[in-house]
Amino acid sequence: MIHVRHLTKHYADLKRGKIVALGGVSFDAMPGQVYGLLGPNGAGKTTVLRILSTILRPSGGTASINGYEVLTQASHVRHQIGFVSTNTAVYDRMTAWEMVEYFGRLYGLEGETLRARMEEIFDRLQMNEIRDMLGAKMSTGMKQKVSIARAIVHDPPVLIFDEATSGLDVLVARALLKSIAELRDQGKCVIFSTHIMREVEKLCDRIAIMHRGHVLAEGTLGELCETHAQPDLEELFFHLIQDHDYRHAIVPAG
């Protein structure tokens, strides 16, 4: 479903010079699976997801979604994905219904098909109360629901959540994780980035631990703990990070 091979991304930064945001990332994610990208800030998670969403172009390597290459078949790829970004990203002067309808139409849905699909989504996500509410008046939880509705309106096989729980309160975050689990159960391939380990433990079927543009370890939680002889994810995470920084002679901050 998602195949990423030796993906690299370089850019220039005034302070740090030439930055290697991704230094050859590879992984595979399958349908009916939540694939977690776990890493601290600056690990390269957002860069990977932006490349998969065709927002950024990779400097090297390949990535394909449902058989379509992100670099050369970007238009096809965009039809295969639903993207929910870090910020809730809703239009202030549009209602929930208008926003979801707008994206539905951009994905080629029309008339009764679109309407029926929207009714179903609004029922499932319990959004009927905010149907005619303008984005500017919505709470963060409401905005996040609209973002999900917008991302799934065209029923894509792949869903990309980029730190979607960031800044949400516990109740809203819990509801979001529940929605993601439901999407997985429907057979979607979900790729989910976060730096919160509890979410990964609870939700993800496979995990890639990222740090400084590299995948340090990849597999199921059980496999990873066993391979690296660590008792839980938190210990595994710190072990891998410290080991990587030590090998690259980088003294960790703090």
Binding site: R50, S53, S75, R78, A89, V90, D92, F103, L106, Y107
Partner: peptide, 14 residues
């Protein structure tokens, strides 16, 4: 500023 540009860029609109 609103963060909606990323969403729009990942939509099918070229």
């Amino acid at each position: 500023e609103r963060g909606t540009l990323e969403t729009l860029l990942s939509s099918p609109a070229e």
